[in-house]
């Protein structure tokens, strides 16, 4: 779901390929047989160009999302209201940086460099999860992000641990292990607020009001409007559809909100006993489209912040590379 944009644009075209050669068809059949048999595809294995291309985009979008995702929460490190919360938040944001590193690493096994990927992001040519284009004006937003955004992410990430591409699957296993505390700490923040003062309860409700619908949008467009799902499912890059995951998320999360004593901001939300699911209201996809297009509240700011960090850090990266070169020249055996 950090790769929502991948699925949503029917106008987006895959890299054009020449008409397939006969040996490619045989290889493709063998490749699909391996995928069907739940074998993992590893970096040097033959793979269809479309598979490679799709993976690079999905993995890199996921990586970009982690890196940009450090910003809305990093925003509250210096103002965390207790030392324990400060420590937890630093650890969480650190994890997110780490996840970005794992994922860029996985993408690099497919023949693209981290530099190229970062250049694409900073040039505004790459997508990342739209959820991080929303601001965190209050401390309760830190709780809401952990509870709802990480909650939604986990829903998508667990199936990805069984993705057909080995390095991505392994990165996801690592990420899922680390992610479980992220959601729990967010919910614990919400619980503390909900049980706190009137001002804290109001803060928590107000954050839920702002994050609920964007969290639902994280799962991407409705299956009917999602062009790439079928191919991704065939290649076992995507294991469940957008709507399936979104429904599961709603079913899990509504009782959690009820436990908090907070109201989900959806007047149409109701339990459908026959289906054993929550029915929920229509999502406003125009907001989603606008945010994806760059017109969300924080799009420009997020990219600008990342650009500035990258630019400000250039002299540091250059110095490290220059020092390493000097070391090699001084003593070829060392460095």
């Amino acid at each position: 779901m950090y790769s929502q944009a991948l699925d949503q644009a029917p106008r987006e075209r895959e890299a054009p390929s020449a008409s397939p050669r006969p040996e490619d068809s045989a290889r493709e059949a063998a490749f699909l047989a391996r995928v069907d048999a739940e074998e993992k595809i590893e970096p040097k294995d033959w793979m269809p160009e479309g598979y490679r291309h799709t993976l690079i985009r999905q993995i890199s979008q996921h990586a970009h999302s982690e890196i940009v995702g450090m910003l809305p929460e990093g925003n509250w490190i210096t103002r965390a209201p207790s030392l324990q919360r400060k420590a937890i938040l630093i650890a969480k944001v650190q994890d997110e940086g780490g996840h970005g590193a794992y994922l860029y690493g996985a993408a690099e096994t497919l023949g693209i460099s981290r530099e190229q990927l970062i250049d694409q992001l900073l040039a505004g040519k790459a997508k990342y999860s739209s959820i991080f284009n929303y601001p965190t004006p209050t401390w309760a937003d830190v709780g809401a992000i952990g509870w709802l955004v990480d909650g939604a992410a986990i829903m998508n990430q667990i199936p990805l641990c069984r993705c057909s591409y080995g390095p991505y699957a392994r990165a996801m296993v690592r990420i899922c292990k680390e992610e479980s505390f992220h959601q729990r700490q967010g919910y614990e923040i919400m619980l503390t607020l909900a049980r706190g003062t009137a001002a804290q309860r109001r803060m928590a409700q107000e954050a839920l009001d702002r994050w609920w619908w964007p969290a639902l949008m994280m799962f991407g467009p409705s299956d009917a409007d999602s062009a790439h799902t079928a191919q991704s499912v065939r290649w076992k890059i995507k294991r469940f559809t957008n709507d399936e995951l979104r429904q599961k998320f709603v079913d899990f999360t509504v009782p959690q909100a009820q436990f908090l004593g907070l109201a989900v901001p959806d007047p149409e939300l109701r339990w459908d006993d026959a289906a054993q699911h929550y029915r929920f209201g229509a999502i406003d996809w125009t907001e989603f489209q606008q945010v994806l297009r760059g017109n969300g509240p924080c799009n420009r700011e997020r990219l600008q912040t990342r650009r500035r960090a990258h630019e400000d850090g250039r002299w540091v990266r250059e110095a490290a590379a220059a020092y390493a070169l000097k070391q090699r020249e001084r003593s070829p055996a060392a460095a």
């Binding site: 990093g74 490190i77 420590a87 630093i90 944001v93 970005g100 990266r317």
Partner: peptide
């Protein structure tokens, strides 16, 4: 803590965060 997310590289974000967490723990 103010620097996490703004370091010259992802690796330095992690390195600075590591130091921040350690000294925060000592402070506590």
């Amino acid at each position: 803590g103010a620097l996490v997310g703004h370091a010259p590289s992802i690796e330095e974000d992690l390195g600075l965060a590591n130091t921040a967490l350690d000294v925060l723990g000592q402070a506590r």
